[in-house]
Simulated scan of single mutants.
Amino acid sequence: MATFVMRQHEYLVAVKAEDGLLTLHTLHWADEIRKPKDEIDGLPGKSKGTAKEVKMAEQLIEALAMTWDPEQFHDTFQFQRKVAALIEAKKAGETVEKAEPAAEPTGAVELVQALRASVERARGPKSTGGTATRSRSVKATEKKPAAKKRVRSEPKEDLSGLSKAALYKKASAAHVVGRSHMTRDDLLTALSAA
C-alpha cells in the first residue's frame, strides 16, 4: 500500500507484482466510499432472472461481442498532436491562424426581447394587413407607426366575468394566435387588444 501525488492530488494505491512488472492500482480513500443503501432508498433486493431472461441476455452479449484490438481506439482529444503540428507549421514558416475567440454568451434579457418580438411578429399581420413570416430577424420586426384608420368605436364587451373556456371560444372566433398556450389572463388581454 502506498500514496503518491499526480496532478496536485494525492492518491491511495496498491502496488503489485504481475508478470514481472510492478503495477499500480488506484484505490478510494475511506471517506470516498459510501454505502448504496444509505444513499439511495428503495434499492431492489437480490432477484434471480428467469431462464428466458438469462438466455436472452447471453444472446445479446454474444451478438455485441467483438475481438479486442487496441489499435482501433485512439485518443480523440489529441492535444499533443495538435501542438506538435502547430510547432512544425511554425518551423516551416507557415502562418498559424489563431483560434477564433469563443462567442459571447447571450443574456436572459436578450431572450426575453426575442420572445417579445416573436409575439409582436405573430400579432403584427392583423394590424398591418401583411402576412406573418417566421424567418424575419428581430430587427426586421421593429414596428413602424401604423397608419391610423377611422374605425367606429363600438362599446367593448365586459369579458372579465367569463370563464377561461368561454374566453378561449371567443379567442378562437377572433383567430387569436397562440391561444392554446395562454392563461385566462393572457386570453383576456389578447381579446381586449383585438
Results as ranks from 00 to 15, higher is better:
residue 8 Q to K: 13
residue 9 H to T: 14
residue 9 H to F: 07
residue 9 H to Q: 13
residue 14 A to V: 11
residue 15 V to K: 13
residue 17 A to Q: 08
residue 21 L to Q: 10
residue 23 T to V: 01
residue 26 T to C: 06
residue 26 T to V: 03
residue 26 T to M: 00
residue 26 T to A: 00
residue 27 L to P: 00
residue 30 A to R: 15
residue 34 R to H: 07
residue 34 R to E: 05
residue 35 K to W: 02
residue 36 P to S: 11
residue 36 P to H: 03
residue 37 K to V: 08
residue 38 D to L: 07
residue 38 D to V: 10
residue 39 E to K: 06
residue 39 E to A: 06
residue 40 I to G: 00
residue 44 P to I: 08
residue 44 P to R: 12
residue 46 K to M: 07
residue 49 G to R: 09
residue 50 T to I: 14
residue 50 T to F: 02
residue 51 A to T: 15
residue 55 K to Y: 01
residue 59 Q to V: 15
residue 60 L to Y: 14
residue 61 I to W: 07
residue 62 E to H: 15
residue 65 A to N: 04
residue 65 A to H: 06
residue 67 T to N: 11
residue 67 T to G: 06
residue 70 P to G: 01
residue 70 P to L: 07
residue 71 E to A: 10
residue 73 F to H: 13
residue 75 D to I: 14
residue 77 F to H: 10
residue 78 Q to A: 12
residue 78 Q to I: 03
residue 81 R to K: 14
residue 82 K to A: 11
residue 83 V to N: 11
residue 83 V to S: 05
residue 84 A to D: 05
residue 86 L to E: 01
residue 86 L to F: 08
residue 86 L to V: 13
residue 87 I to P: 02
residue 90 K to M: 00
residue 90 K to P: 01
residue 90 K to D: 02
residue 91 K to N: 08
residue 93 G to T: 01
residue 93 G to N: 01
residue 94 E to P: 05
residue 99 A to W: 05
residue 100 E to M: 09
residue 101 P to Q: 00
residue 102 A to V: 14
residue 106 T to L: 10
residue 107 G to M: 06
residue 107 G to K: 07
residue 110 E to C: 02
residue 113 Q to H: 08
residue 117 A to E: 03
residue 118 S to I: 07
residue 120 E to C: 02
residue 122 A to I: 03
residue 122 A to L: 08
residue 123 R to T: 09
residue 124 G to T: 09
residue 125 P to G: 05
residue 125 P to K: 02
residue 128 T to F: 02
residue 131 T to Y: 09
residue 132 A to P: 06
residue 132 A to M: 12
residue 134 R to C: 03
residue 135 S to W: 12
residue 136 R to K: 04
residue 136 R to Y: 01
residue 140 A to W: 09
residue 140 A to G: 07
residue 140 A to F: 04
